[in-house]
Write a protein that binds this DNA or RNA. Structure first.
Lengths: 112, 112
DNA sequence: TTGTATATATCGAAAGTCTATATATAACAT
DNA sequence: ATGTTATATATAGACTTTCGATATATACAA
C-alpha cells in the first residue's frame, strides 16, 4: 500500500475514473480500486464515504439506492459535470507526473 | 502551479533530489525547483523551512552557515542517511506513478 | 451464537501545505 | 532621502485530506 500523503489529491481522480467505467456503490469502489491497482491503492471507508458525499453536493455524481440480498446499496453515477471534473483532474495529474519526471530524471515516459 | 494536495508526499522527495545535485540554501531550493520544473512546482517558504528543520532533526541533512553579500545563508547538505531516504522515496513514487498509470490507462511509460 | 463479510456513516487525530506575519539586509527606483 | 522590491530565514494558525476508531445493520458460516 502506498503512503497516505501520496494519495492526497489523486483519490478524487481515482474515484471519478472508476465511475467512468460504470455505476458503483462505495464498498465496490474500495474493492475495485484495490484489485485494479494490484493492491497499491487501499482506499479506506473513512476516506471514501465523506468524499462521495462531497462529490454529490458538488454535482459531480448522482445517487440511487438498490436492494441486494437484504442490504441497501447506494449507487453512484458520474454526471456530465463529473466527467468534466475527471478530465481536469486527469490533465492536472499528467502535468504533475511529467514535472516529477523532469525532476527525477532517468525515468523515461513515452507519449506525453 | 500544481494543486497543493498533489504536492503532499512528494515535496520531501523533491527537496532531497535537489540536494543530491549539491548543497543549497533554502531560498535557492525554491528558485531551483521552480526553474527545473518549468514553474509547475512553486514551493512556499512557509512549507520549506519547517520541512528542512524536520529533515535536519531526522539526520537526513546537515547544515552550515555562509556569508554572502552581507546576508547569512544556511546551506543544507545531504547525509548518507538522506541519500538512503531519497532512494526509498523515489522507489515509492515510481510505484505510485505506475499504479496511477494502470488506473488511468492510455498513458504509456517506458522503462518501468 | 460467535465470528466474518458486506455496506454505510461520522468523529477526532494526524500529516502536510498554505497564508500571514515577523525580522533583517541589499539593491534599485523615484 | 525614501519607498519598493528582492533576498533570506522563521513561526503561528488555518485549511485540506487521509486515516483509525467506532457505530449501526444484515447475511452467512462454523
Amino acid at each position: 500500500m502506498i503512503e497516505k500523503s501520496l494519495m492526497a489529491g489523486s483519490t478524487i481522480l481515482l474515484v471519478l475514473k472508476l465511475l467512468e467505467q460504470g455505476d458503483l456503490y462505495g464498498y465496490q469502489m474500495i474493492e475495485s480500486l484495490q484489485e485494479q491497482s494490484n493492491n497499491v491503492f487501499e482506499l479506506k471507508a473513512g476516506t471514501l464515504y465523506p468524499l462521495l458525499h462531497t462529490l454529490e453536493q458538488d454535482g459531480a455524481v448522482e445517487t440511487y439506492e438498490q436492494q441486494a440480498q437484504g442490504r441497501t446499496r447506494k449507487y453512484y453515477h458520474l454526471t456530465a459535470q463529473g466527467q468534466k471534473l475527471l478530465k481536469q483532474k486527469t490533465a492536472e495529474w499528467q502535468k504533475y507526473a511529467h514535472a516529477m519526471k523532469d525532476m527525477l530524471g532517468g525515468m523515461s515516459y513515452a507519449g506525453i
